[in-house]
Design a protein around this nucleic acid. Structure first.
Length: 777
DNA sequence: CAGTGAGCGAGCTTCCGCTTGACTT
């Protein structure tokens, strides 16, 4: 029996540490927190503001096990993470396992290496109750905010909604960004590009340059091209400047999520799932971290690897420091556990994520990239322009060239940006050797119309980045927060279709200016976060009634108070009381404010036929249009607002359109024939069966006759659908679908080769099995 | 790839942070 029991948070960590510690030590895991506020109740005594903890059902067995092992051990070592949450986990362990907090050993380490663990064992300390209390304050505050605000939303907006310190700010960011985009006015401007030629000894090289001025109007741009017509061009200066690029720090959770999204197209939760597997297989360090620190061991092996692979001049050992607000740095940066493995075995996703992590880590230990930037100024002189304006033409063409003189870390890794327009090109542009006084020939000069671009929508990953910047949320909650706001339908991940826009290009070539008008699609965005009507209404409601909670600095400010508790300068109950004193009456006021109307409700006008009021509002099941009031003697009518319209902007006319369908066109076989509109377009419904309306038919004017013919046509089709059944296997059938005959078996579909289409009815059971086998992959 | 589609009438919903479960033979 081991004399020592060490308790850590993660089972994978426990396994590794046990190897370092020898036979006297048993290492177990708490699997995170073992105790929490009750799930379904507020669980806080409102008079004393004291929390009421319980061990959740799913943790009972584990806790019993820990208890038994702790009893047998002579010495228990609490080795949860060195941050607020970790300290609290240790305290809960003390309480639950019946350990004396005044004597129990508390140890911490920031990296899972043998020396770090042995070092930690040498320097145990006692539990830090101030830190524990800071955590209790954090926990209680979040519960109060969440469990007091959410019910207000149930009453004023829609049941089952939620609000919280983190998620509500995330939604706010998205709603405000969307409004910024809507109100952005794009302005046109004109940039001038030139292609010159330099005639040397029997060679002719091209020089591309851009004018240093952007014109506001088409007229100015054309006037400038006119000046160019009989201008001469000369290199007026050449300057060379060395630049350097430095590698990005190693990955944290947030930067890993961003880069995996940009480079691999992973969603935030996908990244975390793949990383979790890599971690469990011992391939990378812990994936939920805000630290950019690397262990000494990693620095040493990285150095060795870089020198081996790329040579000594590529190596540069670097230590990085975290700048992120509120970072708690309980772990290392995310890195391969063994830098000598450049790649691993595993699924393709695992391989790709691992390689990304390897490259980022290696690059962080590599030399700066050196770049030589050349700037060439090309002046133009025009005799006639000079005479009219009394001076030389004031504009200059600028040609920029960048040559990588030493690639350094760029050999393995370059960080991406969210700005898709500026990709790699800025680097590789090479200029010919030019000298001051060189005369250039103009080949082509074009004025291209461009448009100022507004803010861009958030992606999952860029939202995480923003939250981190504001100090809101933690590495373990970024992914869950992103999914919560989508689950609540505050936000949707979707595509925003671009709009077509035309722009002008005027090109001066020879003595002629050729004008063209081209078209482009702009603003096409994929996988961006868009606010829904519900998200907008909830946000506006919370902003109006609880602006302090939604304040972007609320978390940062309250964190200062938690820090003060952790430093022993304030008492945690007082901090919570101070907050609740203001918060509670606000909640009471809002919930008691008697109002006939739901949040976000808007009257569009009156129904032209009946004169009853028409509203847009969030109904029991989402955004609806309502005609009439609930207390009318005539019941109100409802229609769902389709997803391509928004509650904020829908007009009375558009709203009234919604009530024109479904409409009954008549009776057939004694039951009504109804024309409706579903999510797949207009349809005919009769006797609980549906037939899609062809695009050529207008749902508003389609007649009973055509509807009936569609119904009978469909019946005929259904009859012909079942081509063949088999006695051998009732689950197998040959069906006729939109794309011809196919085999369906146990819910799965298999295509039949074209050559057999004419004789599908003769296919035997055996033959079908063969086809299925072949088309499986 | 292989068909889809309504209207909803009691009781419950909800927070943020830690961490991975998964009953047998």
């Amino acid at each position: 029996m081991q004399e020592n029991l060490v308790i850590v948070e993660s089972p994978a960590k426990a396994k590794t540490i046990e190897k370092f510690l020898g036979n006297d030590f048993k290492v177990m895991s708490s699997y995170g927190h073992i105790r929490d506020l009750k799930k379904k109740e507020i669980s806080i005594d409102m008079d004393r503001l004291s929390p009421d903890y319980e061990i959740p059902e799913e943790k009972q067995k584990l806790v019993a096990d820990l208890k038994a092992k702790a009893k047998k051990a002579k010495q228990v070592w609490l080795a949860s993470d060195e941050d607020r949450e970790g300290e609290a986990i240790s305290w809960h362990l003390c309480e639950v396992l019946g350990l004396d907090e005044n004597v129990t050993n508390r140890i911490v380490f920031h990296e899972i290496t043998k020396p770090a663990i042995l070092e930690a064992i040498q320097h145990p300390r006692r539990l830090d109750m101030n830190l524990v209390n800071a955590q209790q304050a954090r926990r209680v505050l979040d519960r109060l905010v969440g469990f007091k605000l959410s019910p207000v939303l149930w009453r004023k907006v829609k049941p089952s909604l939620s609000a919280g310190r983190v998620q509500s700010v995330a939604v706010r960011l998205i709603v405000e960004r969307e409004r910024d985009i809507q109100s952005f006015q794009s302005e046109p401007y004109f940039r001038v590009h030139a292609v010159f030629t330099l005639t040397g000894n029997e060679t002719e090289t091209e020089v591309k340059a851009e004018l240093d001025t952007r014109f506001k109007t088409h007229e100015e741009a054309l006037a400038f091209l006119e000046i160019c017509k009989n201008s001469s061009f000369e290199v007026s200066s050449v300057s060379k400047k060395p630049l350097k690029r430095v590698p990005a720090p190693p990955f944290t959770t947030s930067t890993l999520q961003q880069e995996a999204a940009r480079k691999l197209g992973f969603s935030v939760s996908q990244t975390m799932m793949v990383a979790q597997r890599l971690y469990e297989n011992g391939l990378i360090t812990y994936m939920r971290t805000d630290s950019v620190n690397l262990s000494k061991l990693c620095l040493a092996t990285s150095k060795e690897q870089v020198i081996n692979l790329y040579g000594k001049e590529y190596s540069q050992v670097r230590n990085f420091h975290t700048k992120t607000k509120g970072a708690q740095e309980a772990h290392e940066a995310i890195r391969p556990t063994d830098m000598s493995a450049m790649s691993i075995n595993g699924s393709s996703q695992e391989k790709r994520l691992y390689e990304l992590i390897w490259k980022r880590t290696a690059a962080s230990q590599m030399a700066d990239a050196k770049i030589e930037k050349t700037t060439v100024e090309i002046s133009l002189s025009n005799p006639s322009a000079t005479s009219t304006k009394g001076g030389a033409v004031k504009h200059l063409f600028i040609a920029n060239g960048e040559v990588i003189t030493f690639d350094g870390f760029l050999k393995v890794y370059r960080e991406s940006t969210d700005d898709e327009e500026n990709g790699m090109e800025e680097f590789s542009h090479i200029l010919p050797d030019l000298k001051q006084g060189d005369v250039l020939q103009r080949k082509e000069i074009s004025a291209i119309e461009r448009f100022s671009s507004g803010p861009i929508r958030y992606t999952e990953a860029s939202l995480v980045h923003k939250l981190e910047e504001l100090g809101i949320g933690r590495p373990s909650t970024y992914a869950p927060t992103i999914s919560t706001i989508q689950q609540r339908e505050y936000v949707q991940k979707g595509d925003k279709k671009g709009e077509e826009r035309s722009f002008s290009i005027d090109t001066l070539k020879g003595d002629k200016v050729v004008s063209k008008c081209k078209k482009e699609i702009v603003g096409n965005e994929k996988g961006k976060l868009l606010p829904t009507d519900i998200g907008i209404v909830v946000n506006d409601f919370l902003m109006q009634n609880f602006p302090n909670i939604l304040d972007y600095h609320f978390t940062a400010n309250i964190e200062e108070e938690f820090d003060s508790i952790a430093a022993g300068k304030s008492e945690w109950n007082n901090v919570i009381r101070g907050f609740y004193k203001h918060f509670e009456p606000e909640v009471e006021n809002v919930i008691n404010a008697r109002s006939e109307h739901k949040a976000g409700e808007r009257q569009l006008g009156v129904d032209p036929k009946t004169g009853r009021p028409v509203y847009a509002k969030i109904g029991r099941f989402g955004p609806v249009i309502q005609i009439g009031d609930a207390d009318d003697n005539q019941k109100p009518e409802f229609a769902q607002i389709p997803s391509d319209k928004s509650m904020e902007t829908i007009t009375l006319d558009e709203a009234m359109e919604l009530f024109k369908l479904p409409r009954t066109v008549g009776l057939y076989e004694g039951t009504p024939v109804v024309i409706g509109k579903g999510k797949f377009g207009p349809y005919v419904m009769h006797d609980h069966k549906y037939v899609s309306l062809p695009k050529t038919e207008d749902p508003m004017s389609v007649t009973l006759e055509t509807a009936i013919s569609l119904i009978t046509e469909k019946r005929q089709q259904d009859k012909e659908r079942h081509l063949k059944a088999f006695d051998e296997n009732p689950k197998m059938e040959i069906l006729n679908g939109r794309y011809g005959p196919y085999i369906v078996c146990d819910g799965k579909n298999y295509r039949i080769p074209k050559a057999l289409h004419s004789k599908v009815k003769e296919l035997t059971y055996q033959e079908c099995l063969e086809i299925m086998e072949k088309t499986k992959k």
